[in-house]
């Protein structure tokens, strides 16, 4: 890692620890924000967080590896997680899965060579009445057909052209200026 990058990350971690506090319950919120802005939590970041919280780095590592939404390896700019649990399975999630694999040229569990997409399975995301469902980073999309899967990937590609860094998502979202990904989330359309 470049010295400058390392310094930047160190500053960010100090700032996060100042904000969330240096106690153990602050660990997850700190890691979640790191994950969100960096897309992953590096060895260096784990050590820095551990130092601030005065715990062993392996404690940080053990927490990260426990939770599905924290990762100690670099993933793509967009992490696409397709729900594989029963209700989505019954709504033909396999076809969506095949389409995603074809569009991206990778299998589940892999990242595209250009580092833009990671494709993963996810367990039930609570959209069982509107399946198949998938998440792109933090956003949920429902009633996905193979065609819609293609459209979502296309809009990710368009976003990448404008905003190649994941860290920009949070700022964009907070500003409310841009819907980070095209396609509004149909909130409780059925209820």
């Amino acid at each position: 890692m470049l010295v400058l990058e390392r310094e930047g990350l160190g500053r960010l971690i100090r700032e996060l620890c100042d904000r969330h506090g240096r106690s153990r319950p602050a660990l997850l919120p700190i890691l979640q924000e790191l994950q969100e802005t960096q897309g992953w939590i590096s060895d260096y970041a784990m050590q820095a967080v551990a130092r601030h919280l005065d715990i062993h780095p392996v404690e940080v590592y053990s927490v990260i590896t426990f939770y599905a939404f924290l990762n100690s390896e670099k993933k793509g700019r967009f992490v696409i997680r397709l729900c594989r649990t029963i209700s989505c399975d019954m709504r033909d999630k396999d076809r969506v899965a095949r389409q995603l694999e074809q569009e991206l040229g990778v299998k589940f569990g892999q990242t595209t060579a250009d580092g833009r997409f990671t494709l993963e399975w996810s367990n039930c995301m609570g959209m069982c009445d509107q399946g198949p469902a998938l998440m792109v980073n933090k956003q949920i999309f429902t009633q996905i057909s193979p065609e819609r899967a293609h459209e979502i990937i296309e809009s990710c590609r368009r976003i990448y052209a404008l905003y190649p860094e994941r860290s920009e998502d949070t700022a964009l979202e907070a500003a409310g200026a841009v819907q980070v990904l095209a396609g509004p989330l149909a909130l409780e359309a059925r209820s």
Binding site: C124, C128, S191
Partner: peptide, 16 residues
Amino acid sequence: DEGEPGTFKDRVLLTE
């Protein structure tokens, strides 16, 4: 932490 497969009622309650 509504995670039981097939459960989404808390999502609706928290929304509505």
